[in-house]
Design a binder for these strands. Sequence first.
DNA 1: ACTCTTGGTTGCATAGTACAACTGGGCGGG
DNA 2: CCCGCCCAGTTGTACTATGCAACCAAGAGT
Lengths: 142, 142
Amino acid sequence: MAAEAVETIQREMTSFARRARATAGRMHPELSLVSYTLLAHLEGSDGCRATDLAAHYGLDKSTVSRQVTALERAALIERRVDPDDHRVQLLHLTDPGRRILAQVTESRRTAFQERLEDWPSEDLERFAAYLVRYNGWSAPED
Amino acid sequence: MAAEAVETIQREMTSFARRARATAGRMHPELSLVSYTLLAHLEGSDGCRATDLAAHYGLDKSTVSRQVTALERAALIERRVDPDDHRVQLLHLTDPGRRILAQVTESRRTAFQERLEDWPSEDLERFAAYLVRYNGWSAPED
DNA sequence: ACTCTTGGTTGCATAGTACAACTGGGCGGG
DNA sequence: CCCGCCCAGTTGTACTATGCAACCAAGAGT
């Protein structure tokens, strides 16, 4: 019956969330899950604003502000004042930032690949599709 | 190609982890994700020890100790000294604990059911199977 | 009995977060 | 043109969750 499957999905998602929570801080000496996410977002939309990041990820602007400060101190991003609106800071990846990001992305990719290496590609594609569906299209990059 | 699917799985799992992280604390006024997990574990193995919980979930014993203290203060669990070994505290759900746990479990179940209500049961079962496989049988309750 | 082990608590330190108050730049109506 | 209002971002404060290390107390082995 389907109720059982829902139960399983719930249990497994919870288990995954718990495990992810435990490892989120130590994924990389330089980068927590959140800072990785912010950095990765910048790769896609270079020059976006802190407020955008906050809205996009449902974080408080103060939280983003501090994360951005940390990332800037680590020289992974740069803040440039928007010439059109001096209130705004446009965030840009630096070269070291790009490098670290690529490195972390790669190590994550490897980890996932190892975990999934013996899956038939048909299953991979179906699983991927289910996850996308589960997470919902409404927030494609959330 | 399958690499793309792996990419998608990685992205979606990351997204899910981020979202879960953000809501883990506020899933219920009484119960965070961790305390819910501990409580739920006790339902399965009533009278287990704090150390077991720590080992099982990869948490520090101090963390568990504090969580247990909080759960006891909230009267959701009881600590009884093991008569055979006075160092050990056997943890037991109280009736209110069982009640709250059931309530939270139910509300979570409802949330998942709503999210999955328009999935064909065939898809639910496949998705569930994929998740189980992804999480690995080695740690069925981790 | 003395020591080693083990379950648990407590004192720090840290990360990540929210909320609220504040700062300082823009912008629009009179 | 100026004053009041809005908006981006920062900072102060508090809280939660966590780990590590030091500690305490109770068993176990010699």
